[in-house]
Computed example of a mutant assay.
Amino acid sequence: MDQDSRRRALFIAALAICATPWVGAATALVLGIAFSLGLGNPWPVGSARASKIILQLSVVGLGFGLHLEEVLQTGRSSFTYTLVGIAGTLALGFVLGRLFRTDQNTSALISFGTAICGGSAIAALAPVLKAKTEETAVALATVFTLNAVALLLFPAIAHLLQLDQGTFGIWAGLAIHDTSSVVGAASVYGDEALAIGTTVKLTRALWITPVVLGLACMKKSEQKARVPLFIVGFLLAAGLSSIFPQYAESWGALAALARQCLVVTLFLIGAGLSREVLRKVGIRPLLQGITLWILVSGLTLAALLGLP
């Protein structure tokens, strides 16, 4: 067996291990990162595509473990934080972009990804800005790197501050970029944090559509924005579990399967953090992304804790 064949076999074995209930979210992420940086991901394109599909199906599956009324209540209660957070993040991102002299399009993409929904928001906004491929790649690499850090850092900070699961779920949903990282960090913290964090994050992700449409109108762009289908699926799943409570055991099994699929997704996401991705992140975009992220995370947590 040659080196490439051994690497593929090890990758499949690691993936299979992450599919078992004995491996948690944080372990899967670290294993994926270690595999990519140590041995190299044998299927970088395929695993990136698979992680996106599995993540979306998993988010839909998580809806079966929730009641629709609970989802709507969480969305309503976090609306003000979400609106203020998005507006504040975009404004801070603009100022920091000027301060660090980051390329205008790259700065806007990093700010938009931080404000709303990471890679999904960046992908939706890039055509409106007519961003170059390398500008989009740098923004995605910056946000992706910080997402990987958030998965490990947020639960550690929360345990240090002894945050309850509800507060952590809201904080993660508002302050972490991508949906995958929110559900990953929240799943480490607890089931209640996972339910709240996922709902808050998906509520926030819905803002992709109006913001992109607004910017498209301002720039007279023909780019269209749509509501992500997996969010619709999540709401439908929560609705089904609410309408047919007699199947609670089945809904619970689907939700449990979805949580384990998230662990597999985190391994694939970690395996995407390659040396090439790290090289794409220039010092100015990285400084802007880190500074913006720290400010947003800190101010959001202070607001949730009622600090002066």
Rank of each mutant, 00 (worst) to 15 (best):
L153T: 08
S221D: 14
L295P: 01
A185R: 02
L278E: 12
I12P: 11
W293C: 05
R98A: 15
A255L: 12
A121L: 02
G270V: 02
F230R: 09
R226W: 10
V227T: 15
K201Y: 01
G298D: 01
D178I: 00
L163E: 05
L153R: 10
S242E: 07
A48K: 13
F168R: 14
T133D: 05
L268Y: 02
V232F: 08
V277G: 05
I176Q: 09
V149T: 15
F234N: 06
I53Q: 15
R76G: 05
A137M: 12
K224Q: 12
A303W: 00
V95I: 14
E249F: 10
A50I: 06
K220G: 11
A48H: 08
L286G: 13
Q165S: 07
H159S: 12
A123E: 12
A121Q: 07
L72I: 14
Q260F: 01
W207N: 14
G272H: 05
I269L: 09
L163F: 01
R76K: 11
D2N: 15
T209N: 15
I269E: 12
S274I: 00
A216K: 15
T89W: 02
I122S: 02
P210D: 08
L92K: 07
G190R: 07
M1T: 15
A141N: 14
P155F: 01
Q288F: 00
A216L: 03
L72V: 07
I176E: 04
G239R: 08
G197S: 09
A225N: 09
C18D: 10
A25Y: 02
G118L: 00
I54A: 08
L202N: 11
N41M: 03
A271D: 07
D178F: 00
I283G: 09
Q260M: 03
F144W: 02
V45I: 04
A150I: 01
E135D: 13
S107R: 12
G40T: 13
A253Y: 07
V188G: 02
L129S: 06
R101A: 08
A87V: 10
L125A: 02
V264P: 04
F267M: 04
V212W: 00
G197H: 03
I33G: 03
L109G: 07
L278N: 09
L268A: 04
G282V: 04
V264E: 04
G166W: 03
V60Y: 03
G40W: 04
L161P: 11
S181R: 03
S78R: 09
A195H: 15
L125T: 04
S77R: 14
L286S: 13
R275M: 05
L286N: 12
P44C: 10
A34E: 12
G252A: 08
D191E: 11
S187Q: 14
W171A: 00
G118M: 00
I86C: 08
G63A: 11
A121I: 00
F267L: 09
L125H: 07
Q3G: 10
S241V: 00
T179R: 06
A172D: 07
Y189E: 06
T80H: 15
G119F: 01
L305K: 09
V281S: 13
I53W: 14
V23L: 10
T136A: 15
W43Y: 05
S297L: 01
A16R: 14
Q162P: 13
